[in-house]
Simulated assay, not measured.
Amino acid sequence: MDKPILKESLRLLSSLGKISSRSMFGGFGVFIDDTMFALVVQDKLHLRSSEETINLFKEQGFEPYVYKKRGFPVVTKYFALPEECWNEPDSILLQAVIALDVAKKDKEKQKTAEPSRIKDLPNLRLATERMLKKAGINTVEELRSTGSVNAYKAIQQTHSSHVSDELLWSLEGAIKGTHWSVVSSETRCELRKQL
């Protein structure tokens, strides 16, 4: 369904850098160097908007892509280019450059944003956050200052069932901002000794 417009979009936008596409949102996300800035869905190219460009897109008659999640409509930041835009590929490229810049800035903001809740840290979920709260650790700052070993011990004391070692690696990874599987075997041995 979206393949002809996807192929044409990839050809046109390839001048912006290393281009790729991935299946998502019922269509295909378009990426330059791992930054998604466009979406091809419903036989249309959609470009990412920002607070600055959203009104411009609306004034030009662009429509946002809307999909359903659990029966409710979700309005995305991606706006469909009308068919007549394809008569002026240079105009599409100009707007794509802006969309790519917006996407890169948003990606940077996400990288530097501090998680506000424990469940937002790597490896941790809402269930882990609840376990930590029950153990008296309520914030990201408290978890970091307590440390993985002491947080693990606190969970062991307040949790009725067995707590696996994987939780200890998950807490250590969360504090360091990495996935638990990359916690080195040396670090794991050291953490076990501290227990």
Score class of each variant (00 low, 15 high):
residue 152 Y to T: 05
residue 117 R to M: 04
residue 122 P to H: 01
residue 151 A to H: 02
residue 96 A to R: 05
residue 15 S to Q: 02
residue 174 A to E: 07
residue 117 R to N: 03
residue 34 D to H: 14
residue 134 K to T: 15
residue 136 G to S: 10
residue 163 V to P: 08
residue 23 S to M: 05
residue 165 D to R: 01
residue 148 S to T: 04
residue 53 T to N: 06
residue 63 E to L: 11
residue 1 M to F: 03
residue 83 E to H: 07
residue 65 Y to M: 08
residue 61 G to I: 02
residue 105 K to H: 03
residue 84 E to M: 15
residue 169 W to I: 10
residue 173 G to V: 09
residue 8 E to R: 09
residue 55 N to P: 09
residue 42 Q to H: 07
residue 167 L to Q: 01
residue 113 A to L: 13
residue 54 I to D: 00
residue 28 F to T: 04
residue 121 L to C: 10
residue 74 V to L: 13
residue 66 V to F: 05
residue 136 G to H: 12
residue 19 I to Q: 01
residue 139 T to E: 12
residue 192 R to Q: 15
residue 94 L to M: 13
residue 83 E to L: 11
residue 60 Q to M: 11
residue 74 V to Y: 15
residue 58 K to D: 00
residue 78 Y to R: 05
residue 167 L to Y: 07
residue 192 R to A: 15
residue 171 L to C: 13
residue 32 I to G: 06
residue 172 E to Y: 04
residue 117 R to S: 04
residue 169 W to T: 14
residue 86 W to L: 05
residue 20 S to R: 14
residue 32 I to T: 03
residue 194 Q to H: 12
residue 160 S to W: 06
residue 132 L to S: 07
residue 52 E to S: 14
residue 163 V to Q: 13
residue 167 L to D: 01
residue 133 K to F: 00
residue 72 F to T: 00
residue 114 E to W: 00
residue 191 L to E: 03
residue 78 Y to V: 11
residue 173 G to K: 05
residue 150 N to R: 13
residue 113 A to W: 03
residue 8 E to Y: 01
residue 112 T to L: 09
residue 149 V to Y: 10
residue 52 E to C: 05
residue 32 I to E: 02
residue 174 A to Y: 01
residue 56 L to Y: 04
residue 174 A to R: 06
residue 104 K to G: 01
residue 163 V to F: 14
residue 37 F to D: 10
residue 180 W to V: 03
residue 162 H to I: 08
residue 54 I to N: 00
residue 133 K to L: 00
residue 66 V to N: 06
residue 174 A to C: 06
residue 100 L to W: 01
residue 39 L to E: 11
residue 183 V to G: 08
residue 189 C to S: 15
residue 22 R to Q: 09
residue 78 Y to C: 09
residue 41 V to C: 02
residue 91 S to D: 04
residue 147 G to H: 11
residue 12 L to E: 02
residue 150 N to V: 10
residue 168 L to A: 14
residue 143 L to S: 10
residue 69 K to H: 14
residue 175 I to F: 00
residue 31 F to E: 04
residue 3 K to N: 15
residue 60 Q to Y: 09
residue 5 I to R: 12
residue 131 M to K: 07
residue 101 D to P: 11
residue 31 F to I: 02
residue 43 D to I: 02
residue 160 S to Y: 12
residue 158 T to N: 15
residue 114 E to S: 00
residue 14 S to N: 01
residue 70 R to P: 02
residue 15 S to G: 00
residue 184 S to P: 11
residue 92 I to N: 08
residue 47 L to K: 06
residue 189 C to G: 15
